[in-house]
Design a protein around this nucleic acid. Structure first.
Length: 275
DNA sequence: ATGGCTCATCTAATGAGA
């Protein structure tokens, strides 16, 4: 089974690219961020024609997340407030559509678009900090029944220096700071593993290239799009890669898709032993 | 490398992203 995450930077601008990508790559579950449209304008039928169920949480112009799945989508939770009730800034954090989760094939798939934070001394950074603190509570709550979790999306944080093209240029700046790295690590609570790093320990693997400064041509990128798995499903992961080629297409998103291949459901594997 | 890209918005110049 293939599960992918992709910040598409507007689903309506990227519809042909996403459609072609799905036809070529045949992923089973695709989590999208920055769809940038209200639910009524989301091109649902394009994906249902390809055999995908669609769950969306969008808003006008900004943010917006969606899950496309070839398997039935169950128990959809939109926003933080459908899962938790005990965080003081819940109503402010719920205004921006940045999290959607669902149970698919006995996996809790959690699709996130973490706020960028703008600059370390800004109000937007305070919002980012609160958002990740709230995510921690959300993960604790949703993990109470020990169901396998796949947490994926655009985290707007480079977990390590090797996830940045020139780390010396971004010491303690936004997306690279030790503060953000600690916040993310705390939210993961030692229970969720960055599956890309299980298979690829080397640097120079980016998932985002700035539109400006010829960042793509110079291969100056960041790895800010991640897939995290709990131990009970991590052991079934076969590989994880970034589809860099997609960033080279005409009118691309500034992010490339990240894909994980998992032997799942496990019953299929047992059957293979039989025959 | 951050003003020099791209997106969405009551189609012009602005805010946001990262």
């Amino acid at each position: 089974m293939l599960i992918a995450t992709w910040n598409v930077n507007s689903i309506r601008s990227r519809i042909d690219l996403v459609k072609d990508w799905l036809i070529t790559n045949e992923v089973d579950i695709l989590c999208l961020q920055e769809t940038k449209t209200e639910d009524q304008f989301f091109p649902v039928e394009v994906f249902s024609k390809l055999g995908y169920e669609v769950s969306i949480s969008g808003q006008k112009s900004y943010n917006g997340v969606a899950i496309l799945s070839r398997f039935p989508i169950n128990d959809i939770k939109i926003g933080f407030d459908q899962v938790i009730s005990d965080y003081k800034d819940l109503s402010i954090l719920s205004q921006q559509k940045r999290i959607i989760s669902a149970e698919i094939n006995d996996i809790r798939v959690i699709n996130v678009y973490v706020p960028n934070g703008s600059a370390m001394d800004s109000d937007k950074f305070i919002y980012k900090k609160k958002w990740i603190e709230c995510l921690k509570i959300y993960l604790e709550k949703i993990n109470s029944n020990n169901i396998p979790i796949c947490l994926l999306g655009d985290f707007n944080i480079a977990p390590e220096d090797k996830d940045i093209h020139t780390p010396s240029n971004y010491k303690e700046s936004i997306m690279a700071s030790s503060k953000e790295r600690k916040l993310l690590k705390d939210a993961l609570s030692g229970k969720l593993e960055d599956v890309f790093r299980i298979f690829e320990p080397r640097a120079q693997n980016w998932s985002w290239w700035d539109y400006r400064h010829s960042a793509w041509e110079k291969d100056k990128g960041w790895r800010i799009d991640h897939i995290y798995l709990t131990e009970n499903i991590l052991s079934c992961a076969n590989s994880c890669w970034i589809d860099k080629e997609t960033r080279s297409k005409e009118r691309p998103s500034d992010h490339a898709p990240v894909i994980v291949d998992i032997s799942w459901p496990q019953s299929e594997i047992e059957n293979e032993f039989f025959f």
